[in-house]
Simulated scan of single mutants.
Amino acid sequence: MPDRDAARRATVVTVVVVAVLVAAQTAVTAAVTSGTQPAMAVESVPSDPASSQWSDAPERTVSLSKQQMAPPFGGGSTDELTVQTVHNDTHTAFRLTWADPTNDADIGAPNNYSDAAAVMLRTGDKPPITMGAAGKPVDIWYWRASWQSPDASKSGDMYAYPHPEEETQPGQAAGNPLSTPPTERLAQNYYAKGYGSLTHAPRQNVRASAERTDDGWSVVFVREHGTEGKFDADLTKGKNVYLAFAVWNGSADEVNGQKSLTLQFTKLDTGKWAMSDASSGSSSSSGSGQSAESGGSGGQSEGVWMTHSVSNWVIGLVVTTLLTWTVVYWRARE
């Protein structure tokens, strides 16, 4: 029976394909998501993304998702990000690398948005992924491509002529640090206690540098281990530091809350100097109900991440199964 033979052959091939896909997915998840990546010790921490020292640093790939936890919802144009960490006795550097086909650094016209990247950090107990919470503030390091543009001093200067700057650029005229590009450090240090609470840190102690690669960006953030900033992450030896990451694609109209971000934490253990997945851990509890609520928020966000990841994987597996069986069946009948 040709039809029966074709169906049998299609079933056998499909089972083999599905088994290979499941095995590959398991291996990749274990190696990339759940594994441990050392933070490489170096004599001098490189601030240049193109430094040859980065070629030897272990990589950790993290998944990025659309921001759907607080308005304005949006983003999601970037799927993943590669993180590398190096350190010496006094400084730590993170290099973030991701694919972005467009170089969005010129924001000198209406509806132009800059590419950008950020690292969110907290030392000690794990904060909610929603930019911290009351009692669990987070430290945020932020870089924007427009600050490194040759026309950075003109960025945002859309209506400068013939009007005076105090009318067209009131933030800069008033000395607002959020309106002044950090032309030397190319990064800004912020604190947050939840969505809508972002504030400019009094101590600006983070440096950044970026390189436009063939297919995207490489951005390096560098800071001393110990600082006197009130909510600065403590990177001295023997600490647990929780890290989350975000990127903005300007050409996709991503700005403010519209971004691609990690929905689970990476933990940097500065005792072992290694990075690992922190999603299986739990926030340390104190006696306050507020802390318990914060921990619950973090767990809920991680549950959302897991739900989305598993759903996408199952859908992809079902589609692959149906396509494989159909193609093999009809070819076997020919």
Score class of each variant (00 low, 15 high):
10 A>W: 09
13 V>I: 12
15 V>H: 00
17 V>Q: 02
20 V>E: 00
26 T>W: 03
28 V>A: 13
34 S>C: 06
45 V>H: 00
45 V>G: 01
51 S>P: 09
54 W>I: 05
54 W>Y: 11
56 D>N: 15
56 D>S: 15
57 A>K: 13
61 T>N: 06
62 V>L: 01
62 V>F: 05
65 S>Q: 15
65 S>M: 15
71 P>S: 09
73 F>G: 04
74 G>K: 05
74 G>H: 05
77 S>L: 12
78 T>I: 03
85 T>L: 14
87 H>N: 07
87 H>W: 11
88 N>D: 15
96 L>T: 02
99 A>L: 02
100 D>E: 15
100 D>M: 08
108 G>S: 10
109 A>T: 08
110 P>S: 10
124 G>K: 02
124 G>A: 05
137 P>C: 06
138 V>H: 10
140 I>K: 02
141 W>E: 06
141 W>Y: 09
141 W>K: 05
142 Y>T: 03
145 A>W: 02
145 A>V: 01
145 A>C: 01
150 P>A: 11
154 K>N: 13
155 S>W: 00
156 G>T: 05
158 M>I: 15
158 M>K: 15
160 A>C: 06
160 A>E: 13
162 P>D: 00
162 P>E: 03
163 H>Y: 14
163 H>S: 09
164 P>W: 05
165 E>F: 05
167 E>R: 08
170 P>G: 04
176 N>F: 11
190 Y>R: 14
192 A>N: 12
192 A>I: 13
192 A>S: 15
193 K>I: 07
193 K>V: 12
198 L>S: 09
201 A>K: 08
202 P>A: 09
205 N>L: 14
207 R>P: 04
207 R>G: 11
208 A>S: 13
209 S>M: 10
215 D>W: 02
225 H>M: 00
226 G>T: 13
227 T>D: 14
238 G>N: 11
250 G>P: 03
251 S>N: 12
253 D>N: 09
257 G>P: 00
257 G>V: 00
262 T>E: 01
263 L>I: 02
263 L>Q: 14
265 F>W: 14
270 T>W: 06
272 K>R: 15
273 W>R: 09
279 S>G: 13
280 S>A: 15
281 G>V: 03
282 S>T: 09
285 S>V: 08
286 S>L: 06
289 G>V: 06
294 S>Q: 07
297 S>C: 03
298 G>P: 01
299 G>R: 12
301 S>W: 09
309 S>V: 12
309 S>L: 11
310 V>P: 02
312 N>S: 14
312 N>T: 10
315 I>V: 15
320 T>Q: 04
321 T>W: 12
321 T>Q: 08
325 W>L: 11
328 V>H: 02
334 E>K: 15
